[in-house]
């Protein structure tokens, strides 16, 4: 445990050094993370104003709150492992990782957590500015704020486990971009990134409930906006916990099978 703490600390320093090497790129990347929800925010605000001040249960100010919080949640749970893995396999970096006496997932966890810690202050600042600029309505109960913290952590864990597992497809084929694309489309529509899920048709909502995406983004956002009852929150936590277990089991199985294939066909 202590040794892992040492590794995490060192990875934090390394990630920091890398991010500062590419400050401009980092800024552009963060701009992207801000712009996407901002565009949806503006579009939905316009739609809502045009429809007389609200769409479904969302007022114009609700939309502003929704997308500002979404920006933060997305930033916190986001990973880029699926892009990275293909490169690692192709460049033989994975071979070096496999020769280390530590599971490679640790440096990925450490790297992701580090980069979030580094970018979080700036993102929070931007979120506050945007919330004021668009008169966002964010009115959670105190209990919801308290529950939001573990929910956010669990959202990150679900997303990380699933995307890490999906990234392992690179063991079987080096052309993983098609899979990545399909994943991102599903994520976009079924997580609540494009629109609050409660505004979508009933069948879509049922599907979204059964898949992991909603629990990663839509659920934490709605919780912090104050749109959920304690029972809703409990159901969401249950769903997250279930997906963490599923993700963990899947990851172990796929990792074992993947490394077996890798060591059979050539590294």
């Amino acid at each position: 445990m202590r040794a892992l703490a040492g590794l995490y600390l060192q990875q934090f320093k390394t990630t920091m050094a890398m991010m500062f090497q590419y400050r401009a790129m980092l800024a552009i990347w963060m701009l992207g993370q801000v712009l996407e929800p901002l565009i949806y925010l503006i579009v939905w605000s316009a739609v809502s104003t045009g429809a007389g001040g609200s769409v479904g249960s969302y007022t114009t100010r609700d939309f502003a709150g929704y997308f500002v919080v979404l920006m933060l949640v997305n930033q916190f749970s986001y990973t880029w492992i699926m892009y990275d893995f293909e490169y690692r396999v192709r460049e033989g970096l994975l071979s070096f990782a496999l020769l280390k006496p530590v599971h490679p997932i640790h440096s990925d966890i450490a790297d992701n957590v580090s980069s979030k810690l580094i970018t979080l202050p700036a993102m929070v600042l931007i979120a506050i500015v945007l919330a004021f600029a668009f008169h966002a309505s964010i009115s959670p109960q105190p209990w919801a704020i308290l529950v939001f913290i573990p929910v956010l952590l669990m959202a990150f864990m679900v997303r990380f486990l699933l995307e890490w597992t999906l990234a392992l497809v690179a063991f079987w084929t080096t052309r993983v971009s098609a899979i990545n694309q399909s994943y991102f489309v599903l994520m976009l529509f079924l997580s609540g990134q494009i629109a609050p899920l409660t505004l979508l048709p009933q069948p879509v909502q049922v599907i979204a409930d059964l898949l992991p995406f909603r629990w990663v983004i839509g659920f934490p956002v709605e919780l912090l906006l104050g749109k959920l009852s304690p029972v809703d929150a409990l159901i969401g936590l249950g769903a997250q916990a279930a997906w963490i277990i599923v993700g963990y089991v899947l990851l172990r199985i796929v990792w074992k099978a993947g490394t077996k294939v890798y060591s059979a066909v050539g590294a």
Partner: peptide, 21 residues
């Protein structure tokens, strides 16, 4: 093939290996 992190000084990769091993 290289295992060193490309964009930063080698000493960082060394330190990382210290932690890993």
């Amino acid at each position: 093939r290289n295992q060193l992190v490309w964009d930063i000084p080698a000493i960082h990769s060394f330190e990382l290996n210290r932690a890993v091993y």
